[in-house]
Computed example of a mutant assay.
Amino acid sequence: MIRPLLSRRLVLGGTVLLGVGLGVPLGRARAATLVQVRKQRGCSCCDGWVEHLRANGFICEVSTLDDLTSVKANLGVPEALRSCHTATAEGYVVEGHVPASALRRLLAERPAIQGLAVPGMPLGSPGMPGEPVDEYAVIAFAKDGTQRTFMRFSGERETI
């Protein structure tokens, strides 16, 4: 009997080793989330935010546009919460410099909201280097216009 070159054990073992090599905890491997990012041409902080997401295991597909006003309006981002880039992930809107940990929590909990936003461009938030770092809130917003604080941060560090 001829044995196939790649046995099931070899493939499964290689998959586990690849996951460990990529920093994925054993037993917790899952497909990476695709984040579709729309950014304005020439905005370097948007590139920094994309790199932050990629470094935290997200797959980013980036579209560069001259004007995002209609994108933000079509996705229902309230004007007061708008920032320099807009993204979508698994049906949620992600506006501005939202830390990867907040996005992970959103996707794990799946609350009945439209999305998350970090209005403005707080210093120290992902993609916005600078000192001293700002304290800021990640705001959850819903289609009915309600808003609430989802998480609080100082730079990239979650606060209570």
Rank of each mutant, 00 (worst) to 15 (best):
C84W: 00
Y92K: 10
P111N: 11
R105G: 01
A73I: 08
R104L: 05
P78R: 15
G91A: 12
A87R: 01
T86Q: 02
A87C: 15
A102P: 05
P78D: 13
A89T: 11
V77G: 13
E95I: 01
S83Q: 03
L81V: 01
A100N: 04
A89D: 13
Y92N: 09
E79A: 13
R82G: 02
V94E: 13
E95F: 01
A87L: 11
P78L: 14
R110W: 06
V94Q: 13
A102Y: 03
C84Q: 05
G76V: 03
A102K: 07
V77K: 14
H97M: 04
P78T: 07
G91R: 15
E109V: 05
C84T: 00
A89N: 14
N74T: 07
A73M: 10
V98L: 11
T86A: 08
R110T: 03
P111F: 06
N74V: 04
H97K: 06
G96W: 10
H97E: 02
H85E: 00
L75F: 07
A80R: 14
E79Q: 09
L106N: 08
G91Y: 12
S83K: 04
Y92E: 10
E95P: 08
R105E: 11
V94G: 12
G96A: 08
A100L: 03
V93H: 14
G76H: 11
V77W: 09
A112L: 07
A100K: 04
Y92P: 06
N74E: 14
P78G: 13
S101N: 05
L106F: 07
G96R: 13
E90W: 06
E95K: 11
E109I: 01
S101T: 09
T88P: 10
V77H: 13
G91H: 13
P111I: 05
T88M: 15
E79P: 00
E79W: 02
A112T: 05
Y92C: 08
G76S: 09
H85T: 00
A100G: 04
T86M: 12
A89I: 11
G96P: 00
N74A: 15
H97G: 02
P99M: 06
G96I: 06
A89G: 13
E95W: 00
A112Y: 01
N74S: 15
R105Y: 02
Y92I: 02
H97N: 04
A87S: 15
S83H: 03
S83Y: 01
E95L: 09
E109T: 09
E95H: 06
L75W: 13
S101M: 04
P78H: 12
A73Q: 14
G91D: 14
L103C: 07
R105N: 04
L75I: 06
A73L: 12
V93R: 15
E79N: 03
P99L: 06
A89Q: 14
A102I: 00
E95M: 12
V77E: 04
H85Q: 09
E90Y: 05
R82H: 00
T86K: 00
G91W: 14
T88Y: 12
R110K: 15
E109L: 10
E95T: 04
A102R: 07
S101Y: 01
E109F: 01
H97S: 06
R105C: 02
P99S: 09
L75P: 05
